[in-house]
Design a protein around this nucleic acid. Structure first.
Length: 479
RNA sequence: UCCUCAGUAGCUCAGUUGGUUAGAGCGGCGGACUGUUAAUCCGUAGGUCGUAGGUUCAAGUCCUACCUGAGGAGCCA
């Protein structure tokens, strides 16, 4: 008999039919006569209840059916006599596939803290919360490719090892095969990278954008979806040293086209989750409510699915940095001195507290801020007519802040060179990037979406380390 | 990196102004129980109180340093 997944049994299993299921035991309970086994195989958040007659199987084998053990069960599906589940399986035959010493197994049939599960990242796939997150994560990965495929975008694998250290997106991890105990030095006493594997200094990528732009200057609409590495010593609930980023890059798109795409993209992804991850989202919604039940009413977040619907159903607010500064300057917290960093006027770098005020208090919906002062943005962003601001856009979400950062790119060779010189970007190393501005340059735009930040929003989880299987953060690369 | 808080049994936590043999619930183990829903009931084992110093007659409790974790900030996605 072939194994049937529990998700399939719950969806279209026929009472009276025989099935074979395999999975991991969540709990076993019962009396002298009958045992109930909650079995989960990862295909769905729900367990299948196995009913096992004690006399039929004997104590010896049932004792081995402990929390965490893997078993195979042959049996007949039937309507459940007990409350709590519609169907259950009455076992005819039961085999223990892998024993699990209940004394040593860290997971117990009870609530565990997320911190504890993080320290047991190798086992947390067996928990409701984490398996739900993992399934939603997969659905979102699929939806990303679906969205871009439907729009005729081409997925590009940009390099993970890069020689460019000029991307300006943060501290980089160095990649080397040099013996760190015997580093070859040049005559000037510097590290002699000519002896290194690539014959030059290399790093892990902090962004696929520059290479993405090259591809867009030929394929027109491309996107990347790959790992990204930042060696920042960031210790927050929304930063990882290794994360996944989606970076579309579109020829002939101006900033408005870019914003339209970003908004449509986010709404598509969230809508996809609502329609395709119902059970997992319902569970995660409960989990969130449970976690926040001790909070004051006004500090609780909106119900998860309601929150997702809200984003899908409403237009994002779009305003320029300069307009945002005016709003913030006239805001109550600013006048009452409640901001740690008071807003004086144009030029201020917006802090988290300001972004949160705009998104969570003032507009109460996602906000796209555009046209930031050039001083606080990257060199490649297109300069506006005013010579002061650049065509940047940040999409700000409640709780998580910046979920997307993007811009229209500077396609004018001279202006780009000027900006690079102003910001001391070594243009000679970037000859290949500059070449696109020499040969058939076109207006183009793109953005980067932090995949795990999207996951935070969709799942309602509070810590980015819980929406990626094996988080990489400062001092943590255990698994 | 900075600020704040925390580290006591396998897990979640309590431990009163420093004062006898450090507690609970859950989990484990043993037993009871005719269908359970994190089952219930009875019994039982289990702790160098994060590490290293220091103050004191006496430290889980006070002080210092370090380690680890969490939350916030910065950097950003």
């Amino acid at each position: 008999m072939r194994r049937t997944k529990i998700s399939d049994i719950l969806k279209d299993g026929v009472a009276g039919n025989d099935y074979l299921v395999k999975g991991w035991v969540r709990t076993r309970r019962g009396s002298k006569q009958v045992n109930f086994i909650a079995l989960n195989d990862g295909s769905v958040i729900h367990n299948l209840q196995i009913v096992a007659d004690v006399e039929k199987f004997g104590e010896a084998i049932l004792r081995r059916v402990t929390t965490g053990a893997s078993i195979a069960v042959w049996g007949k599906l039937s309507a459940s006599q007990g409350a709590g589940q519609a169907v259950e399986m009455v076992a005819d035959k039961l085999e223990v596939i892998g024993d699990c010493d209940a004394n040593d197994f860290p997971l117990q049939p009870k609530k565990h803290s997320l911190e504890f599960l993080r320290e047991n990242a190798h086992l947390r796939f067996r928990t409701n919360t984490f398996s739900a997150v993992a399934r939603v994560r997969h659905a979102m990965i699929f939806a990303v490719h679906n969205f871009f495929t439907s729009k005729g975008f081409v997925n590009i694998h940009t390099p993970i090892i890069t020689a460019s250290d000029a991307e300006g997106a943060g501290e980089m991890f160095q990649v080397t095969t040099l013996d760190l105990d015997k580093i070859p030095k040049t005559a000037e006493g510097k590290v002699d990278f000519s002896q290194d594997f690539f014959g030059r200094a290399t790093n892990l990528t902090v962004s696929g954008q520059l290479e993405g732009e090259l591809a867009a200057m030929g394929l027109a609409d491309i996107y990347t979806f790959g790992p990204t590495f930042r060696a920042e010593n960031s210790n927050t609930t929304r930063h990882l040293a290794e994360f996944w980023m989606i970076e579309p890059e579109m020829a002939f798109y101006d900033l408005d086209d870019n914003m339209d795409l970003a908004e449509e993209f986010l709404k598509y992804l969230i809508n996809y989750a609502i329609n395709n991850c119902k059970d997992d989202l319902a569970f995660l919604s409960n989990r969130l409510a449970e976690e926040e039940k001790n909070k004051k009413a006004d500090e609780r977040s909106m119900e998860l699915i309601e929150k997702l619907r809200f984003v899908v159903d409403n237009d994002f607010v779009r305003l320029t940095y300069t307009e945002a500064i005016e709003v913030l300057k006239d805001s109550k917290p600013n006048k009452k001195g409640q901001f740690k960093y008071p807003i004086e006027g144009y030029g201020a770098d917006l802090q988290s507290e300001h972004e949160r005020y705009l998104v969570e208090k003032h507009y109460k919906k996602p906000v796209i801020l555009t046209d930031y002062p050039k001083e606080i943005k990257a060199f490649y962003m297109k300069l506006n007519e005013d010579n002061k601001t650049v065509r940047a856009m940040d999409v700000l979400f409640p709780q998580i802040g910046e979920i997307i950062g993007g811009s229209q790119r500077e396609e004018n060779y001279d202006k780009l060179m000027a900006r690079m010189n102003e910001m001391s970007i070594p243009s000679d190393e970037m000859w290949w990037y500059l070449d696109t501005r020499r040969f058939g340059a076109v207006p183009h735009s793109g953005f980067g979406l932090g995949f795990e930040r999207l996951m935070l929003f969709v799942t309602g989880m509070g810590n980015i380390r819980d929406v990626i299987p094996f988080p990489r953060t400062p001092k943590n690369a255990e698994f």
